[in-house]
């Protein structure tokens, strides 16, 4: 039972409290493109699958790094390799299992496979204080994927309203995106208080 509570606690903290996009400003390439909710869910699913699968080897690797302090500089390299291998496996598995879905996002799938979100979650989860047992590690990776999808849905929803308004010419496009990203992160900082996320 404790397994579930820890998993849920890590999941909740990754999704709401330290949301990857709003509290940690971690993004995927092409975050500002115009997307439909369907595409957002596919990207979220890809991120979550790669996160969860790569969290198992990453947990074992972080165990080793925690014991031998000398290897710390190689931690990012090892996590990157884990992430890369898992991505390649997923890439070819998807090509075989779901060819029609694969054809539609083949051009952009590599960018959603290896990027700041996937590598960032592994690194942050490894640095988390109570990541000693697997449940909170896995919960954090799961929560990060779900949290990032919710963040993109929030961006989509604000974009729906802004598409119909007359924003002034100097703020149209990217400047207004940064501003409303900032305001939503202001809303989410209410949970964090004024201590900076690690």
């Amino acid at each position: 039972m404790i397994f579930l509570t820890e998993l849920f606690a890590a999941f909740l903290s990754a999704m709401m409290v330290e949301n990857l996009l709003f509290a940690r400003a971690i993004d995927i390439p092409g975050l500002y493109e115009k997307r439909t909710p369907g595409q957002i869910f596919t990207i979220g699913a890809v991120l979550m699958v790669i996160n969860c699968i790569s969290s198992i080897p990453a947990y074992l690797a972080s165990g080793i790094f925690r014991s031998h302090a000398a290897f710390v500089p190689f931690m990012t390299l090892s996590f990157l390799l884990i992430n890369g291998i898992v991505f390649i496996l997923c890439y070819f598995a998807m090509q075989r299992l779901m060819p029609e879905r694969f054809a539609s996002i083949q051009k952009s799938l590599p960018f959603y496979g290896v990027n700041c979100v996937t590598l960032g979650t592994l690194l942050i989860a490894a640095r988390m204080s109570n990541s000693s047992h697997f449940s909170s590690f896995f919960g954090y990776c799961l929560g990060a994927g779900v949290g990032f999808t919710c963040a993109m849905l929030v961006l989509w929803s604000i974009r729906q309203k802004l598409a119909l308004t007359h924003t002034p010419k100097t703020f149209r496009g990217l400047p207004i995106t940064f501003i409303y990203l900032g305001i939503v992160s202001l809303a989410l900082f209410g949970l964090l208080g004024n201590q900076l996320p690690s």
Partner: peptide, 15 residues
């Protein structure tokens, strides 16, 4: 120094 300060500052700088 928080993320939100960075976002809003970047928004105004871009503008």
């Amino acid at each position: 120094q928080m993320a939100l300060g960075g976002f809003i500052l970047f928004g105004f700088l871009a503008a």
